[in-house]
Design a protein around this nucleic acid. Structure first.
Length: 146
DNA sequence: GCCAACGTTGGC
DNA sequence: GCCAACGTTGGC
């Protein structure tokens, strides 16, 4: 069963367009220094899908990415404590879903994004995934084929 | 730029 | 092992 996630990045540092420009080789989602977020990455499997969320600037879900490698130690990290997964862009969200829209939707009131805004890698339920895809105009059938 | 919420660190 | 101090994140 494919699991769903939400990964945050400040567009100043690393944006959706940056990930798109990496193509199918993707990019290591490194720099995470939070145990909860790391544990979420450890739980990821290749093929899992995630939302790409722009924090601070934009505050909206702008794209969908795919996990292309399991969690592995970070090359840059000399403590050996931290890990990252590799992700690649799948498709943009045609109508980016803003934080305000998520908050305004009662179906999404349990989302981690709403209740723990500081967690940078978070799980998304299948229901939440579907709802946001609907709001964003994402073609779910097209996603499956990718 | 401010501040609330949260996580981590370190003294005891 | 508790908790105060500090640092960071991220919404506003």
């Amino acid at each position: 069963m494919t699991a769903f996630w939400l990964l945050k990045s400040e567009p100043d540092v690393f944006s959706w367009n940056d990930l798109v420009s990496r193509g199918p080789k993707g990019e290591a989602w490194d720099g995470v220094r939070n145990y909860q977020a790391r544990n979420n990455m450890r739980a990821m499997k290749v093929g899992d899908l995630g939302f790409f969320y722009h924090s601070n600037e934009g505050k909206e879900i702008v794209g969908i990415l795919r996990v292309i490698s399991p969690a592995h130690p970070e090359a840059k990290d000399d403590t050996g404590k931290w890990e990252c997964v590799d992700v690649a862009a799948v498709t943009p969200v045609p109508k980016p879903v803003g934080l305000d829209a998520v908050k305004a939707n009662p179906k999404l009131s349990a989302m981690v994004l709403v209740n723990n805004s500081r967690l940078s890698v978070q799980p998304v339920s299948a229901e939440e995934w579907k709802e946001i895809c609907k709001m964003g105009g994402v073609d779910l059938k097209a996603l499956k084929g990718s």
